[in-house]
Nucleic acid binder design. Structure first.
Length: 227
DNA sequence: TACCAGGTCCTCG
DNA sequence: CGAGGACATGGT
């Protein structure tokens, strides 16, 4: 595929398709098809599963849980994360994680439970030190890579950081845009959108919705983003 | 039965 | 660096 430049976006290379279809239009198409996704889901003890469309207040009060969820969902279906969160509830706190006698056992449904238990302990210890949540700080912790760090920054700390995952790269590929580095993808989106956490929140969630459909019906997902 | 899921780390050349 | 493998459960 031939790559061409767009003077509006110096440093980026686009296929001919993307020139006529910027990333805001893609957002509108995804939103039009899937609608609001209501992220981040917060575990609700009353119903025993995660609830979407939570108020900003509830999300504010559950920042730690959001971060824990971001770790638990690494290469793992959210349904399995919910089981782990249910086992951790009703109290999901750094103190509980650090003193839990059977952490590996209760998070087992989320997979990679040995590694993830270690990640949760390291993150909890860091949390209790009351450090400022910056990208550099988070990336410095063992077990937190770029996507997990960015998920925390966006969904827990409300910062305008665009989250890149495998689905996002797949979407880009469909649009004819490919980069090598994670940060190149991130800047590609951030450079074309206003730095609005709510927009980034919805966009990433919509890309996940699109990505989930991709494996089931590739023909359909291509049509959704086509002009 | 294989393959995939809201990745990350480690090792080896 | 960069490719390749390990980590692990549950759904389709």
């Amino acid at each position: 595929m031939s790559k061409i430049t767009n003077p509006d976006y110096p440093g980026f290379y686009f296929s001919a398709t993307v020139i006529y279809m910027n990333i805001k239009k893609v957002y509108k198409k995804l939103y039009g098809y899937f609608g609001s996704q209501g992220w981040w889901p917060i575990f609700d003890i009353k119903i025993g599963e995660c609830k979407y469309n939570c108020s900003e207040n509830i999300k504010q009060n559950n920042k730690f849980e959001i971060c824990i969820g971001a770790i638990l969902t690494q290469n793992t279906a959210w349904k399995n994360v919910e089981k782990a969160l249910a086992n951790l509830s009703p109290e999901i706190s750094p103190e509980k994680i650090l003193t839990h006698k059977k952490l590996e056992k209760v998070i087992q449904p989320a997979g990679y439970y040995n590694q993830k238990a270690k990640k949760l302990r390291i993150f909890s210890k860091w949390w209790l030190q009351n450090k400022k949540a910056t990208r550099e700080e988070l990336l410095g912790l063992w077990g937190i890579g770029p996507e997990t760090a960015d998920s925390m920054l966006l969904y827990a700390f409300n910062q305008p950081i665009f989250v890149i995952d495998t689905y996002t790269k797949r979407l880009c590929k469909e649009l004819g845009v490919e980069f090598k580095e994670y940060d190149e993808y991130r800047k590609f989106f951030e450079s074309q959108l206003p730095p609005d956490p709510k927009l980034f929140n919805e966009y990433h969630a919509l890309i996940v919705a699109w990505g989930k459909l991709y494996t089931k019906d590739k023909e359909k997902v291509v049509k959704i983003i086509a002009s």
